[in-house]
Amino acid sequence: MNLNATLFAQLAVFFILAWFTMKFVWPPIMKALDERAGKIADGLAAADKAKADLAHAEKKATDELRKARESAAEFRSGAEKQAAQLIEEARTEGVRIVSAARTAAESEAAAASQRAREALREHVAQLAVAGAEKILRKEINATAHAELLTQLKSEL
């Protein structure tokens, strides 16, 4: 271990190498490192934004779906109500038609029976007159006794 002028040579080389590193090695590498750190930060921020956007879009889609479902349900209930109303109307109409028919039939039947009764009365009166004629022969004048016969007819 002898000391000599090598020491100063080494000292000079030390500063030359350090200067070279400071000038040509350190800045480009640090620049690359910083730029990459920036890129990574940007990428992470973009990823976060995309995630937020996705969540927003999903929420929107769910809302739209829910709205569509609600309006469909509304439409259906409206249609059901309308259908029920139509059925109700038809039923009422039917009942009305039936009852009208029944009334018509009843009145017709009543008129027919009245007519039959009238005819029957006529017949009975004629029969009674014929019978009385047979019994009384010439003693009863149909024209003279018409009032009597009409009274008899109404009593039947």
Partner: peptide, 9 residues
Amino acid sequence: NGTLGMSIG
């Protein structure tokens, strides 16, 4: 000499 050169630097 080498190491002392650096440490003196």
